[in-house]
């Protein structure tokens, strides 16, 4: 069982749901990201998504685009992100999942990436521009190395694609809640419950939902149906606002604690 499988098994046994915050690696600095990951675990994060900055993030809204640009400016190349994980792995026990567009991974080398990622303690990888249809080459390296390749389901996915994606996805199935790019939204999509049901019908793997979720009451609503809730833009926006503040890490930790509260047993 992978570290991700173990984490979800433990949460299920405890009647909890996972909170998965997203950080753009290197935003505002690589050292700050390291401290944020450590603080996130203490505040109740069950898994952390670390974004690998990319020059052309077509799936992201303005907030994560800016976070990614700050990460790039801070020198957060894929090699440096792997070093960051190597450094933080000794300090946290929760699963760490990289989220990054395909080209930097391709440039690093698929075999080299899969091996290095597992060596430093990365548990999974999410590649938003790599649907399962194109993922054979990466998976041929990731699976034997023990790296979970997490695939995404979207509102436009047909029933046949949902089945295929759920079968191919390892660690969990990432449900993209809405049509559009990442970013906070005032309300949750009305068809989200039906979308989650459609995924549950075809898999027993954990189902985590992301995109457009930024407030504790939204987390509570999604957590009632999903195994995990992913919060990206709201976290990155808070980091942007507090980037130069001495209380950056504490403020982010407090926000993560507030997001986790409704996902605890009886929360």
């Amino acid at each position: 069982m992978s570290r991700i499988d173990t984490a979800f098994a433990r949460l299920r046994a405890a009647g909890e749901r996972a909170l998965i915050p997203y950080f753009s690696a290197g935003d505002p600095s690589l050292d700050a990201t390291r401290r944020l990951v450590v603080a996130a675990e203490r505040a109740g994060a069950d898994l952390v998504e670390l974004g690998i900055p990319f020059s052309d993030p077509i799936g992201d809204g303005p907030v994560i685009q800016r976070g990614s640009a700050r990460g790039l400016a801070a020198g957060a190349t894929l090699a440096r992100v792997l070093e960051l994980v190597a450094g933080v792995r000794g300090e946290v026990r929760i699963p760490l999942v990289l989220m990054g567009y395909y080209n930097p991974i391709l440039a690093f080398g698929l075999k080299a990436f899969a091996r290095a990622a597992v060596d430093v303690g990365v548990d999974g990888v999410i590649v938003p521009d790599l649907p399962p249809d194109e993922a054979d080459e990466l998976d041929a390296e990731a699976e034997p190395a023990g790296l979970d390749l997490v695939h995404l389901v979207a509102p436009t996915s047909t029933a046949a694609r949902v089945r295929m994606i759920a079968r191919r996805s390892r660690g969990f199935v990432y449900v993209v809640s809405l049509m559009g790019v990442t970013g906070e939204r005032a309300t949750l999509p009305p068809d989200l419950a039906a979308q989650i049901r459609a995924v549950r019908l075809v898999t027993t793997k954990p189902v985590c939902v992301g995109f457009g979720i930024g407030r504790p009451e939204q987390v509570r609503a999604v957590g009632a149906r999903a195994d995990g809730v992913i919060v990206g833009s709201a976290v990155v926006r808070l980091i942007e606002e507090r980037a130069t503040s001495p209380s950056l890490v504490d403020d982010v930790a407090a926000f993560i604690a507030a997001l986790k509260a409704p996902l605890r047993a009886g929360g």
Partner: peptide, 21 residues
């Protein structure tokens, strides 16, 4: 059938665009 010219081409897009494509 999936848009590959040898190793080139393909559909490297977010899942949301796969069914529409």
């Amino acid at each position: 059938a999936r848009g590959h010219f040898g190793r080139y081409g393909g559909r490297y897009v977010p899942e949301a665009l796969m069914a529409p494509l």
